[in-house]
């Protein structure tokens, strides 16, 4: 569905995307994970043919965005980071007008708009002004709008940022339904749980480059161990604890307020720490997540 070679995007001297390779297959859910400024949105916009690449090769839906932008976009639904709904139009008109941009007959759009308002649980708000919608409703309307032209590829830039947990789960459920219908989904997120829940494969981006690539579980297995031990100790005790964990063969990251150690058995790690005679101020043993992968790869937290 998408192929990129040495894809690069530069704004003046600033390199937003520094030459990445990508291969996104039909029917999969593909994630871009990374902190703000990693180059996710710039990559999305190039794939959506809304921003020309500075250099490198890009192919989307089997065509070249440099020459076939309109034809490629005809099969793409975009959910941008800012909802970009048309505030001068009602909820229903947002769908009807958007459908016309794709040159669809009015009859077809009307029929689909009805179904999509049901899908987005907005059927009772059809005549409402967009300004009157909550954040979650706006997000769902944006997703519904992206589906008006029955696209084979849907690109979502941070689909759940700023939503409360309930609204987030509703959006996830809608995305699952699309996936089951065979729609290819590309999404960016800086939420680990979202990437783990939704993505078949993902890339981790940092400073315009891809630093890891693979299915979520495989990434966790490759870059961190199965479990994580978080310990909070006094600065004076830190060296002793790190030495003990090293002897145990566990990788260890020092964060501002705690240590993270990775191993297949978190409790065994904890026992090793306690054996040093140090009394930790706090401990937590948990499953490793993509957050830990990101931390390992970049030495930084994802969301600060």
């Amino acid at each position: 569905m998408v192929r990129a070679r040495r894809l690069r995007k530069q704004f003046g001297d600033f390199v937003a995307v520094g030459g990445i390779d990508l291969e996104i297959r039909r029917g999969e859910v593909f994630g871009f994970l990374g902190p703000n400024g990693a180059g996710k949105t710039s990559t999305m916009r190039m794939i959506a043919c809304m921003s020309p690449a500075t250099s490198g090769e890009l192919e989307v839906r089997g065509r070249d965005p440099a020459t076939d932008g309109p034809a490629i976009r005809a099969g793409i639904g975009l959910v941008p980071q800012e909802d970009a709904l048309d505030a001068e139009l009602s909820v229903l008109d947002n769908l009807l007008v958007y459908g016309r941009y794709f040159d669809l007959p009015r009859r077809v759009i009307r029929e689909r708009a009805g179904q999509l308002l049901e899908f987005a649980q907005l059927a009772d708000r059809a005549g409402a002004k967009v300004d009157a919608l909550s954040g979650g409703m706006r997000r769902r309307l944006t997703i519904a709008r992206a589906l008006v032209a029955a696209p084979e590829l849907v690109i979502l830039d941070e689909p759940t940022t700023g939503l409360d947990p309930q609204a987030r789960h509703l959006v996830w459920e809608r995305l699952y339904r699309l996936k089951r219908e065979g729609v290819t989904l590309i999404l960016t997120t800086h939420y680990m749980d979202e990437a783990e829940q939704l993505c078949d494969r993902l890339v981790v981006m940092d400073r315009g480059r891809i630093v890891a690539e693979g299915p979520p579980r495989a990434l966790v297995a490759e870059h961190v161990a199965r479990e994580v031990l978080e310990v909070r100790v006094l600065p004076a005790d830190e060296a002793a604890v790190v030495a003990a964990l090293d002897r145990h063969g566990a990788g260890c990251d020092r964060l501002a307020d705690r240590l993270c150690a990775y191993g297949d058995d978190g409790d065994a790690l904890l026992a090793a720490v306690l054996a040093t005679g140090v009394h930790p101020e706090g401990v937590l043993v948990r499953r490793a997540s993509l957050e830990d992968v990101f931390l390992r790869l970049t030495g930084r937290r994802l969301v600060d």
Binding site: A48, M50, G69, P70, A71, R73, A74, I76, L78, P80, E82, A84, L85, D86, A87, E88, Y98, Y101, F102, D103, R145, A149
Partner: peptide
């Protein structure tokens, strides 16, 4: 209003 952000994600240029 960023009206054209959405417009340009469609076939329109």
């Amino acid at each position: 209003a960023h009206t054209y952000e959405a417009v340009l994600s469609t076939p329109l240029t």
